[in-house]
Design a protein around this nucleic acid. Structure first.
Lengths: 400, 400
DNA sequence: GAGAATTAGTATTTGTTCTGAACTATATGG
DNA sequence: CCATATAGTTCAGAACAAATACTAATTCTC
């Protein structure tokens, strides 16, 4: 829910909490700054910044780097930066694999391990047991590398209830109503911030914002091509979750009111044209005795060979995506799109088709069409990054 | 822009500013409360509430009502309520009329005056001169009625830049790049809060939220049928302005990728099917020698007579709107729509067509389709209401 | 190379604001 | 008339940032 929650009364201590986070966020993007620079940038006095930084050093989130040479006159400042000795664990349960990684506060993915496994229809408890042991192994590797975990995050391909840690429904895993609170607790045991559950497309969209193509954009629609078509809306450098908490569901925007029935019960949805199954079927690639990965490889081979049927199928997918992108552009006033997931491998044909359709449907409206370069670690990076930001937003929780 | 602006440092005084607004908002919806009730509801101590209320009484925004009888034991509380002696002026410049009204803090429209005039293509300075004298007359009437103005707002049918008070473009008025800062200053001269410029559909959407059908909803898409099709997104009881500040532009969402070229340069936009001109043309109602109002009357007459061509035109408009509404439902996770403006007079045919199309395209997704009952004063009510809320959010500005 | 200039960071006092506890004020009920 | 209950006020105490005056460390200039 986006609505303003409980009307918490303002207390005197809130001021310090806010200023701690303010100073910390100054350190975030730039990397290094001195107390004096922070004072100038935030409007706080040097005295206040000194006091706040002392607390932040105590939390372990920040460390001093020693004197920074400016070549100018006067006493040199002491460099301050986010500590690479603190991090968060990000995990992803997907249809074809499990993945866990540890991201430190400087943005480096310090450990990263993937286990290939077909999880569709598998019992959740079995998958979660595998995830638990993988997370333990990665967590130990991170500890050996000197990274202490602040929290964690788990991204899943389905609709989630973050508050309760429940996976409401994940058609591609054939899971529904799976309580994951226990699995979340085991991701980063003993960490000061609790792990949260998130949707995979949302996490990937955030990974783009913090570590990928979105850094330069600030506001964009992220499109994730997996089995379905997922989406995440980033508005003003923040994930926009909408009225009910599940915004950005691009897969079921209607692009052809007279079109085919969709599995959602609707008609003419994006997924009926640009979903993986729809594209493969339209390209004439049958599923007989082949894995999803194998069929996608066949599709890229057909595209490379210039097969007209395959090219046409991907072009139609691009046109369908364009209709949905224009809807987003009009409704939430966006001008950029970032494409990730399997859309990346279709880039050569999909990109031009999408751009051409956008020019036809709404000339000049969309000014940026970018493809992700984060690859398969996007979702876990986003989940871990979100955990780090929860810590950066509440540093006071780490103080005695 | 939705992005976080300047990183203002937290000061001790911020706490009081926030708590003043917190207490004031407790008074808002309910109407009456005692200091003790406010303390219990907000979590502030009785001592703090007493001190805050003393300041609020000084601002004139709040007044004591005398002892409230509870019939229970103990000392009775003193009722507190927003003062009906403070209000804001709302104004609207539209194609066919000028309108100005004064809304008080209790939500009553105390004065309201409309001047019919065809403003299309008229010189802005002439229209604004008329507006100025109308606002002066209404302002004096309000003063005579004991209402002191806190601020004002002006709603216009076009794209606005609120920060600079500029009307960027208003095709239906044939205006572009009109600086309105001067006109805004003259709306409520001497008022402590400066008047702001807003888009008409956005203001109408807010009027629904605060005084209309939106009170029970909290999140919805408002659709305004004027010459064009405008929209306003309300998410979590707040107007959502999107990445660039102009969200909710429903009129140019693509509903028919193979459809007609639109005046915007795009193709198959909502307005090419559900815009006033498109509907009238499809209904076979020619424009020869008749005003817009006259042609709309002819359309309603045809509908009442069951004319197949007119009914079909409105039904197709409903189907086009449904595609856009589903896009909004998916992208920002909404489940309610409120229709206003000229859509109200088409209600009998448009409502069922829209609902049927919604059931076909996305069964169960939209649970509420409501029509506005605020009539022609919606936009000015929203503009005035926004001015009142600016005052309620910053009561400290009224203290010495 | 000594002192002036300049910038970084710290210590101390002051004013604002909330909290908590004790207190006064005003009602109901027996 | 007194016990009880609720409303509201007063006052000391703690937390906090601002303002001011200070110390620390470096470069520039003569």
């Amino acid at each position: 829910m986006t609505s303003q929650a409980t009307p918490a009364p303002g207390r005197v201590g809130d001021v310090r909490r806010r200023n701690l986070a303010l100073v910390l966020n100054r350190l975030g993007p730039e990397g290094v700054a001195s107390r004096a620079e922070i004072a100038a940038a935030t409007g706080l006095t040097k005295a206040s910044v000194s006091s706040l930084v002392a607390d932040l050093l105590e939390t372990g989130l920040v460390e001093e780097l020693g004197v920074t040479r400016g070549g100018e006159r006067g006493r040199p400042g002491v460099g301050l930066a986010l500590s690479p000795r603190r991090g968060a664990l990000g995990a992803e349960v997907n249809v074809d694999y499990l993945a866990v990684g540890v991201l430190d506060l400087r943005g480096a993915l310090r450990v990263h391990e993937t286990v290939e496994a077909s999880n569709h229809g598998r019992a959740p408890e079995d998958v979660l047991a595998d995830l638990r042991s993988l997370a333990a192994r990665v967590g130990e590797a991170a500890a050996a590398d000197g990274v202490e975990l602040l929290g964690g995050g788990l991204a899943v391909p389905g609709i989630v209830d973050t508050a309760s840690g429940t996976l409401v429904t994940a058609p591609n895993l054939a899971w529904a109503g799976v309580p994951l609170a226990g699995a979340l607790q085991d991701l980063a045991p003993g960490a000061p911030f609790s792990a949260e559950l998130s949707n995979e497309a949302d996490s990937a969209a955030l990974a783009e914002l913090w570590y990928g193509r979105g850094r330069a954009l600030g506001s964009y629609l992220y499109l994730s091509g997996e089995v379905g078509v997922g989406g995440g809306l980033v508005i003003g450098s923040q994930l926009f979750t909408g009225a009910g908490g599940h915004a950005g569901e691009v897969g079921h925007v209607v692009v052809d009111p007279g079109g085919r029935r969709c599995s959602c019960g609707g008609r003419g949805c994006v997924e009926t044209v640009a979903g993986q199954e729809a594209v493969l079927a339209a390209a004439g690639i049958t599923g007989a005795g082949s894995t999803t990965t194998g069929r996608l490889d066949a599709l890229t081979a057909s595209l490379a060979a210039g097969d007209a049927r395959a090219v046409g199928a991907v072009e139609r997918a691009g046109e369908a995506l364009a209709v949905a992108v224009v809807a987003a552009a009009r409704l939430v006033d966006l001008s950029a799109v970032v494409l990730g997931g399997h859309f990346g491998i279709l880039r050569g044909v999909l990109g031009p088709a999408l751009e051409a359709a956008l020019e036809d449907l709404a000339p000049g409206r969309i000014t940026t069409v970018a493809f992700s370069d984060l690859g398969a670690s996007a979702a876990l990076t986003g989940a871990a990054g979100a955990a780090l930001r929860r810590a950066l937003a509440a540093p006071h929780a780490l103080l005695g």
